[in-house]
Amino acid sequence: MTLLELRDIEKSFGGLRVLEGVSMTVEEGSIQGLIGPNGAGKTTLFNLVSGLLRADTGTIVFDGTDITDRAPKHIARDGVGRTFQLTRPYPGMTTQDNLLPGLVYAGGYDRVSTARSRALELLDLVDLVDLAHEESRDLTMSEQKRLEIARALATEPKLLLLDEVFAGLSHEDVARQIELIEGIRAELDVTILLIEHVMEATMTVCDRVGVLANGTIIAEDVPDEIVHDEQVIDVYLGSGRGEAGTGPDSDATPDEDVPETGGGLDG
């Protein structure tokens, strides 16, 4: 069953056309990835789905309801939770308290005391329970990324939008994050849409991957096919793909004419 569907989404900022007719679907229970070069409009897409921005044209349907023009608070209550690329914990609150707003306002935990104990469960899930009483601004980057995930889960979402939760993490932390995301799907029955630069992690964790470039989805398939897709290699991977550790066959024809994308697959 389709949980999220985007139809012909267009979005411009002044004269800058960021999304030029994006259509995609996310199936319930899947982990769907969305990759694309810097400035491809990935975060804009998340802002549209979570309601922080409005699409110029097109329709967004979530769980059978048209949410194109709904306010963020309603979309959150409908069951869309999200993280932010630049981590934005509530800085003056403790790690535990960071989860309370989502729990009581969207997660259905009306009583503050039950919300507090649920917060500890979620912190346990992301392995932050020992830091429950630390101020969130004192957490490391890796810890803040996990707090972002826990805080998004606090709204008890059906769909979890993860915005570059691997970016800037060490190899060990990426591995841990992959484990965490797989654990979330298994334990919480949540559908996940993640946008990402880190190819290796995306290809490992996702069931399907879409590629956003020049304002449209140029390819959408299982990871193995995506890394072999000529069009994707042309616009996105460039000749630097081997360095990013995406593990494509060495037979995949490197095209000499492909413009160098700066090898910036991780950045």
């Binding site: 306010a71 800085p91 707003p101 709204t155």
Partner: peptide
């Protein structure tokens, strides 16, 4: 408190 800390984030967490 959530509004004080980050109003946009608060709005994505169901807060009016």
């Amino acid at each position: 408190y959530a509004i004080r800390e980050d109003e946009a984030v608060a709005s994505t967490q169901g807060i009016d």
